[in-house]
């Protein structure tokens, strides 16, 4: 089996893979980084979103071999080493942006990619950007609210619908 090497969450990572090994399986099974979830495995739900070279991608629709030599960031690297939550994670907690939590890693990684490109998005832009992230619990309102709050915008007037 060939070997793949990449940088995951700032640390060198390598492992033996098959050609068909998906990036998400490499992260979860070889590296034990189970924060990245597999929801649909058909690139619909976005629970597996990670950053590759700083860009959001669906880790279930990319082979591990394609990430050779690249920088990969997963949900495990969002909080500080001491456990202090990333501002987006804290906003999800403050604004009740999760219920079962299964979609949350993908939501947080997508939100981080959005805010990097567009630091103060409108509500419509947030909703548009989350097109590829499905949540079956919340109805999205509080996720959108959390992301707007994480961007530093006043969300006190947005009612929890």
């Amino acid at each position: 089996m060939p070997e793949v090497k990449m940088t995951v969450n700032g640390k060198p990572a390598s492992g033996q893979i098959e050609g068909r090994t998906l990036l998400v399986d490499f992260l979860r099974e070889n590296l034990g980084l189970t924060g990245t979830h597999v929801g649909c495995d058909t690139s619909q739900c976005g629970a597996c979103v990670v950053h590759v070279e700083g860009r959001a991608v669906k880790a279930c629709t990319m082979f591990a071999a394609e990430a050779e030599g690249m920088e990969v960031k997963t949900i495990e690297a969002m909080a500080e080493p001491d456990g202090t939550l990333h501002p987006i994670q804290a906003a999800f907690q403050d604004h009740h942006g999760l219920q079962c939590g299964f979609c949350t890693p993908g939501m947080v990684m997508s939100a981080a990619a959005l805010l990097k490109d567009n630091p103060t998005p409108t509500e419509a832009e947030v909703r548009d950007y989350l097109e590829g992230n499905l949540c079956r619990c919340t109805g999205y309102h509080n996720i959108v609210k959390a992301i707007l709050a994480a961007s530093g915008q006043d969300v006190s007037k947005i009612a929890a619908e």
């Binding site: 690139s43 991608v57 629709t61 997508s110 959005l114």
Partner: peptide, 9 residues
């Protein structure tokens, strides 16, 4: 086309 993550690949 698709969604942001799809457009990145």
């Amino acid at each position: 086309i698709g969604d942001p993550a799809v457009r990145n690949r």
